[in-house]
Simulated scan of single mutants.
Amino acid sequence: MTSLADADLSELVEDWMDWGEAARRLGVTEAKVRTMIKDHELAGAVPAPGASPGVPAAFVDDEGLVVKGLPGLLTVLHDGGYDDRECIAWLFTDADLPGRPIDALRENRGSEVKRRAQAMGV
């Protein structure tokens, strides 16, 4: 199995937003998006060689807010030693939840996702 660090994010994540699009959808500035990534409220990565850095579109809900539970989950994963690329790969990999952790978060089933993330800590 491919490690999270080696995962092809361009294949795992269907839809990416550049900083400008993320800022527009969230109603903030691009600088704020970068701060949100630094503070683990969002995760960002370069999805493929030569691509611009971006944020998975699934991280923002239909109301223009960060998906409920995502910042706390990202903090748990970062505390466990994962970087943003690995966090994104984990969130978009089909796990035994059932389904992908990002889908569980978007469906307000974040407790189980967070519990599993805590159990994975390195």
Rank of each mutant, 00 (worst) to 15 (best):
S111D: 14
D39R: 15
A104G: 12
E63Q: 05
A22K: 04
G54K: 00
I88M: 09
A51V: 06
D15C: 07
G110H: 06
I102R: 02
G64W: 11
S3Y: 05
K114P: 00
E41G: 04
E107M: 09
A89R: 01
D8I: 02
G44W: 10
E107W: 01
A104I: 00
W90G: 11
L74A: 08
E41R: 09
V113E: 10
D94K: 15
M36D: 05
L70N: 08
M17E: 00
R34M: 12
V13M: 10
V13T: 13
L74Q: 08
L70H: 00
P49H: 09
V76W: 03
A31S: 12
S52E: 03
P47F: 02
G81P: 05
T93D: 09
R25Q: 14
H78E: 14
V13S: 03
D61G: 05
S3I: 04
D83F: 04
G44V: 05
V113W: 02
D62Y: 08
G99C: 06
E11L: 13
D103F: 01
G54N: 05
A7Q: 14
G27C: 12
T35V: 15
L73A: 10
G72M: 07
W90P: 01
A119T: 12
L97T: 04
I37P: 03
S52I: 00
I88D: 01
V55G: 06
V113P: 00
A89D: 01
E112M: 08
F92M: 01
A31I: 08
G110Q: 10
R116N: 11
V66W: 02
D103L: 03
R25P: 02
I88H: 11
E112V: 10
T2L: 06
D94G: 06
G64R: 12
L4V: 10
L77P: 01
V13P: 00
G27D: 14
A43G: 08
V122N: 09
D39P: 01
W90F: 12
D18L: 03
R24M: 11
H40M: 11
V122S: 12
M17L: 14
D6E: 14
G44I: 08
D62M: 09
T2C: 04
D84N: 13
M36E: 03
W90A: 05
P53A: 14
P56W: 10
G72H: 05
L97N: 01
E107V: 05
P101Q: 10
L9R: 09
K38L: 10
A22V: 06
L4N: 04
V33I: 12
Y82S: 07
A48E: 15
P56H: 07
I102Q: 03
D79N: 15
V13C: 10
V13H: 02
P49E: 08
R85F: 01
L12W: 06
P47E: 05
G81H: 12
A31Q: 06
G72N: 09
V76G: 02
L91Q: 04
A43R: 04
M120H: 04
A45I: 03
A7R: 06
A89Q: 03
G44L: 00
G72S: 11
L97Y: 03
A58Q: 12
V122Q: 12
A23L: 08
D6R: 11
E14K: 13
V28K: 10
C87S: 13
A119L: 12
A57R: 01
V33T: 08
F59H: 08
V66K: 00
K68I: 04
I88Y: 10
E14R: 15
D39K: 15
P98L: 01
